[in-house]
Design a protein around this nucleic acid. Structure first.
Length: 456
RNA sequence: GUGAUUGUAGCUCAGUUGGUUAGAGCGCUGGUUUGUGGAUCCAGAGGUCGCCGGUUCGAGCCCGGUCUUUCACCCCA
């Protein structure tokens, strides 16, 4: 016998976990649909050519590759072997598991360009796989819930993303969180303004750690990455920012006065906030963070990241605007903006904050029990009548002691048990017992059904 | 990819300087009760101590390797 085990970084989901996860997914789906997004799905497998080169070198390393079917070594010659696995990859594997939902979506848009009407709003809820080292809030298989709009530059999309995030969080009972927003153009502008034009890439990587390691360490890293002492010093006004979105926008307008692109970023953000106002919304939970940088290199406009306060889980949602996502698939000039919820992290957050509703496990309402074959047969008729009436019912499938049947109901936390004994059969009734209170009463089948429906 | 960390019954964990037959609680099964469950009581089942190798008269304990768990870094949801 072998010991059963799971691959690293993967998990089973039992009935309780599934109920909870579906609770989260229902809220997200409902929200996406309310804002006019349509669902699509793409295959778990993509051609490796679709996936590679889209996530940077590190991302390519984290792709799960699938060995070719059949004799996967047949194309390999003895001369190939010393070249190493990377050089021979194309001969061994031509498919991989998807790494995120955005790239498969870009592929989908490029392939279906003639059928789609733009702007196209789609959502997609599917697992993705990354060959990461697992740790807290990080798994090798996890769900993403993406919503993207492609084919428009309208900043209404950005405003709606903020509204959707707030709706989902409100429905889930999350109150203490921050939607950090920034604009990639502002980061570009900052690089210009400090005299390190074009170096926003490394600037982002270093600045991203500001929360974690503090300004002094970030400064060290910047110098290490080739930034001048004078340039880093110029960043200082941005490190200790005044509170308030409006104040920060004003500060940035001044800071970026010599950078047209930076100013454009500020104006875009202002436009988004103005749209929110016109939509009748406020800026609650919105936090303009000019130092917010996201790793993914394809963002060109707005950037989002959502962090729940007071929990030890990383960001639970993120996204941004990109100018040209489908360009690599031969369809240039399709701008888009999208974001994603990390359900597994949301799950961890809700669990840590104890925010899952308790009565979510809407399972069987009543278990029909019996003492012998006669009671079992009687129960079969009751069972059908109950199900026809829409009552979630089950009949204990074996003839056995009542004690065992009650224990089963008790363990499954069923609210009711309907006992089918000789006395009940003789009088055409059912002994309906409330397992929480212990009370029981003999009711006709129709009365029992009425009571069960009333107790829902 | 780098550095730590973990692994003993279904679960949570004890296990002395290496010493004979490996322990507890919970859970599970059966009984006390042949029409009544959820903290009564009684009894019982269940472990090649992650795996492979080494040291030793002798290894759950020491050493090496490997897998696994958890965590930090990198990166990310």
């Amino acid at each position: 016998m072998q010991k059963p085990s799971l691959p690293k970084g993967t998990r089973d989901f039992g009935p309780l976990q599934m109920a909870r996860r579906n609770y989260i997914l229902d809220v997200i789906k409902d929200t996406f649909q309310l804002f006019g997004f349509q669902q699509i799905e793409t295959p778990s497998l993509e051609n490796l050519s679709t996936l590679t080169g889209k996530y940077g070198d590190e991302g390519d390393q984290l792709l799960f590759k699938i060995l070719n079917s059949g004799d996967f070594l047949k194309d390999l010659t003895p001369e190939d072997l010393p070249k190493g696995s990377a050089a021979n990859l194309t001969k061994l594997s031509e498919k991989g598991l998807r790494y995120d939902l955005t790239v498969p979506f870009a592929r989908y848009v490029a392939m279906n360009r003639n059928e789609l009407s733009f702007p196209f709003k789609r959502y997609q809820i599917q697992p993705v796989w990354r060959a990461d080292r697992p740790q807290k809030g990080r798994y090798r298989e996890f769900y993403q819930c993406d919503a993207d709009v492609v084919g428009t530059e309208s900043l209404l999309c950005e405003a709606e993303i903020i509204l959707m995030i707030r709706r989902v969080f409100a429905k889930l009972g999350l109150k203490d969180y921050a939607i950090k927003v920034n604009n990639r153009k502002i980061l570009t502008g900052i690089a210009e303004a400090i005299g390190e034009q074009g170096k926003e890439g490394p600037l982002c990587v270093a600045i991203d750690k500001l929360d974690k390691i503090g300004w002094e360490k970030v400064k060290e890293e910047l110098v290490q990455r080739g930034f001048g002492e004078a340039s880093t010093q110029k960043l200082l006004p941005l490190v200790n920012l005044a509170a308030g979105v409006k104040e920060r926008l004003a500060l940035l307008t001044q800071f970026l006065s010599q950078s047209p692109i930076g100013l454009q970023g500020v104006q875009e953000l202002e436009a988004v906030f103005r749209l929110l106002e016109q939509l009748g919304a406020n800026l609650d939970h919105v936090d303009f963070d000019p130092m917010l940088a996201r790793g993914l290199s394809y963002y060109t406009g707005a950037i989002f990241e959502v962090k729940v306060n007071g929990v030890s889980i990383g960001s639970v949602s993120g996204g941004g605007r990109y100018d040209n996502l489908t360009g690599v698939f031969g369809l240039p000039g399709v701008p888009g903006v999208g974001f994603s919820f990390g359900v597994d992290r949301l799950y961890d957050v809700l669990e840590e904050l104890n925010l899952f509703p308790v009565d979510r496990l809407a399972g069987t309402q009543v278990l029909l029990t019996h003492f012998d074959q006669v009671g079992f047969d009687y129960g079969l008729g009751c069972l059908t009548a109950m199900r026809d009436a829409g009552v979630k019912a089950e009949l204990y499938p074996e003839v056995t002691k009542l004690k065992k049947q009650l224990e089963y109901a008790s363990k499954k936390e069923l609210p009711f048990v309907g006992i089918c004994g000789d006395e009940e059969i003789a009088s055409g009734t059912l002994m309906l017992k409330n397992l929480a209170t212990g009370e029981q009463e003999a009711l006709s089948l129709t009365d029992a059904i009425a009571k069960l429906k009333g107790a829902e």
